[in-house]
Design a protein around this nucleic acid. Structure first.
Lengths: 194, 194
DNA sequence: CTGTTGTTTCAGTCTAAACAGAAACAACGG
DNA sequence: CCGTTGTTTCTGTTTAGACTGAAACAACAG
């Protein structure tokens, strides 16, 4: 962690922090961050040295990242050791992660909601209100899932364009569209009732 | 937790579990889940009794939910105690939560990336690769943020319709679109390479 | 003033997850 | 067969965060 440049170190630490705030193991996120910014593939021992964590920890993290499909093994001529590299394409990274979390968490949630709704309905009018609320939630989540599925079904360029579609509308409201416009959409949205 | 119906209990536990997997305190998520499905507003003591957690814990959780703007105090005639209710509207719930997490985590990440990029650029060509990777990430996240801002700027009905836009595409693939079609959109998205 | 209600804080406990470090094992190249 | 490399599994240990329960405090209604 000491032979990293300040910028790289800052990024890796922040990325690890973000990961842990979103339910991703900090070390896993850090390993990924380092691979993502590394110009060339790294060995497990490189990662151990750079991040200062145990070998077993790195090994597990690499396995998990490979399981997600965002890190893969490559081989370097004249070196028997495995080297690892991250997907470089950010869009692909995004979709792969979203796919995986959808499968692991989102879809089971929708299914669990369907179960709860069935159960509440079978319990008769006494739980009608519960069934109603859960149905609203279930339908909303299903819609989101369906929307994401549609987006994923598009070829990548079309998908990116589909996301950009809002930009035209946004310009009507006088907002810019590139990087630093974030704040414009943050503050005054609280008590609006769309 | 024992006087809840099985369906309600199952939902609350699952919701708490999901919350904790996405960086939201389990108790906070459970309190919200219970308020969300409750036909009438509940007092803090109701929550203590139903969830079996400490009073201070409920109080803190309620404060946090109020801070997010998804729970509010209401008063019941002839009762001096505060009663709490959740936003019932799922779309509003979603946007409020997304707004808050964007503000707390997403925007700071974009800003941190900009910092790292500046630093890497100032370090000269030695860190050109780092700057390049981080810029790709930064631009992607900015785009996502901009897209979300656009969506939020739309009146709600238009926003929902904008999300539904994919449905037409989806129907080409033979999927349905309304509530129970969840399973249809799940499986086959894995190994496609857009 | 007194009892009720609610908030906040704080010290201590508890727990799940992360993590370290070692060991055992497999694969394989030379 | 030996050395290298990598994986897996295990036992402890550590740590962050969640949580409890109590206490101090404020507000206020009657």
């Amino acid at each position: 962690m000491d032979d990293l440049t300040p910028a790289a170190r800052k990024f890796i630490l922040h990325w690890g922090e973000m990961g842990s705030r979103w339910g991703i193991n900090r070390t896993v996120a850090q390993v990924h961050a380092l691979l993502f910014v590394s110009p060339e593939p790294l060995t497990a021992d490189d990662l151990v040295a750079a991040l200062g964590v145990a070998r077993s920890n790195v090994s597990t993290s690499l396995k998990e990242l490979q399981g997600w499909g965002i890190v893969r093994v490559v081989h370097v001529m004249g070196d028997r050791r495995d080297h690892f590299e991250s997907l470089a394409d950010v869009w692909e990274l995004f979709t792969v992660i979203m796919d995986e979390r959808k499968k692991r968490e989102f879809d089971p949630t929708v299914a669990a909601l369907a179960d709860c709704i069935d159960e509440a309905r079978r319990a008769g009018p006494r739980e009608a209100h519960l069934a109603e609320r859960l149905t609203a939630l279930h339908d909303f989540l299903s819609s989101m899932g369906g929307w994401y599925g549609s987006l994923r079904a598009l070829p990548r360029s079309a998908a990116i364009q589909a996301l950009r579609l809002g930009d035209r509308v946004k310009s009507l409201f006088g907002f810019g569209s590139s990087s630093r416009s974030a704040k414009a959409s943050v503050a005054p949205t609280r008590q609006r009732r769309n």
